[in-house]
Amino acid sequence: MASSKLSSGLIFLQLVLLVFVFNSANAQLKVGFYKYTCPKAEAVVKEVIDQVMKVAPSLSGPLLRMHFHDCFVRGCDASVLLNSSTGQAEKDSPPNLSLRGFQIIDRVKAALEKECPGVVSCADIIAIVARDVTVATMGPTWEVETGRRDGNVSRVSEPLTNLPPFFANISQLIAQFRAKNLNVKDLVVLSGGHTIGTSHCSSFNNRLYNFTGKGDTDPTLDSEYIPHLKKKCKAGDQTTLVEMDPGSVRTFDNSYYTLLTKRRGLFQSDASLLDNSQTKAYIKLQSATGGSTFFKDFGVSMIKMGRVEVLTGKSGEIRKVCSKVN
């Protein structure tokens, strides 16, 4: 009996410690983390991004996507930014080869190092930039929690197992989001980020030309949309870029959900959102109501995603240059 009580007590103590560790890590992530150490941090980021968006608005989608690609692999620790002389870093992995805008992150970092050297992490820069490019494309704003620190490990194999592939079915998507403490609503809301940006034909070419290996097309793709896509993407095309949300590629709006209701989502992962009652209901709601709650929901889900497996306190480091460890 005494042994049983001791065992129960140890288990309870372990649970308390786990909760403490989890909460202490997240407690250090807060709005206004740089209020005293670098009060102009977010203003500096916004100034650079506003300048970039005036001359290169097409980078809005890739810079938003960079935050997602960073957080889903090793957490939001800027590991996606690290270079490797041997081609073994995350950015060298196939899912990340289409990422663009690394030079913009470097530009922001340089401006912040001039303002307050060694203070603002690259991981926080990615998170703030994602918000600012969303605002710049007429999307929602939200208060970005900061206090992340930068990791010093980046492995080429990890994006392959952590990032949801463009051909994922709904079960795979839900499972991968749950693994990051994100729920089904977060999945369908964050997918709405596809309202801005482009994709290479290679990401959906099989839906047009060889869906089951028999030279056929994906039956879940609108048959009237297929000829339109085939004009842009020839079989085997690896380089051509296609708008994910035709007509409003540089405007953050709810039209992505309208496209899904018409079975015109570009990726299989987009189409699969119609295979779940909860995600389908959300798609129909946003399409029917002009995105009545989408902007608010997107901000909430982005904040949640920004908390995934973060390094805080004395963990990690504050990189001087985002592409390499100190």
Rank of each mutant, 00 (worst) to 15 (best):
6 L>E: 02
11 I>A: 05
13 L>W: 03
20 F>V: 13
27 A>E: 09
33 F>R: 06
38 C>T: 06
41 A>C: 10
42 E>N: 14
47 E>S: 13
48 V>Y: 03
53 M>R: 05
54 K>H: 10
54 K>E: 11
57 P>C: 12
63 L>P: 00
69 H>S: 08
75 G>L: 04
76 C>W: 02
79 S>A: 15
82 L>F: 13
83 N>S: 15
89 A>V: 10
90 E>W: 00
95 P>G: 10
95 P>Y: 13
96 N>T: 11
97 L>M: 09
100 R>L: 13
100 R>Q: 15
105 I>W: 05
106 D>R: 12
106 D>C: 07
110 A>R: 13
111 A>Q: 05
112 L>D: 00
121 S>E: 03
121 S>F: 12
124 D>N: 11
124 D>M: 07
128 I>R: 10
130 A>P: 00
133 V>A: 14
141 T>P: 01
142 W>R: 03
145 E>N: 05
147 G>E: 08
149 R>V: 04
151 G>K: 03
153 V>Q: 05
155 R>F: 09
157 S>L: 12
160 L>T: 11
161 T>E: 04
162 N>P: 01
163 L>I: 15
164 P>F: 11
166 F>C: 12
173 L>Q: 11
174 I>Y: 03
174 I>R: 08
175 A>G: 11
175 A>P: 04
176 Q>N: 11
186 D>N: 15
187 L>Q: 06
189 V>D: 08
195 T>N: 10
196 I>C: 03
202 S>Q: 12
205 N>D: 03
206 N>Q: 06
206 N>P: 01
207 R>I: 00
208 L>M: 04
210 N>D: 14
210 N>V: 14
213 G>I: 06
216 D>S: 09
219 P>H: 07
224 E>K: 09
225 Y>G: 03
228 H>W: 01
229 L>R: 05
231 K>W: 04
231 K>G: 10
232 K>N: 00
239 T>Q: 06
244 M>K: 08
248 S>C: 06
249 V>L: 02
249 V>R: 02
257 Y>A: 13
261 T>S: 10
262 K>D: 02
262 K>M: 06
262 K>T: 00
271 A>C: 12
272 S>F: 03
273 L>M: 09
275 D>L: 08
275 D>K: 14
276 N>M: 04
276 N>H: 10
278 Q>I: 14
279 T>N: 07
287 S>R: 10
300 V>G: 07
306 G>Q: 07
309 E>T: 14
313 G>I: 02
315 S>W: 14
320 K>F: 10
320 K>A: 12
325 V>C: 03
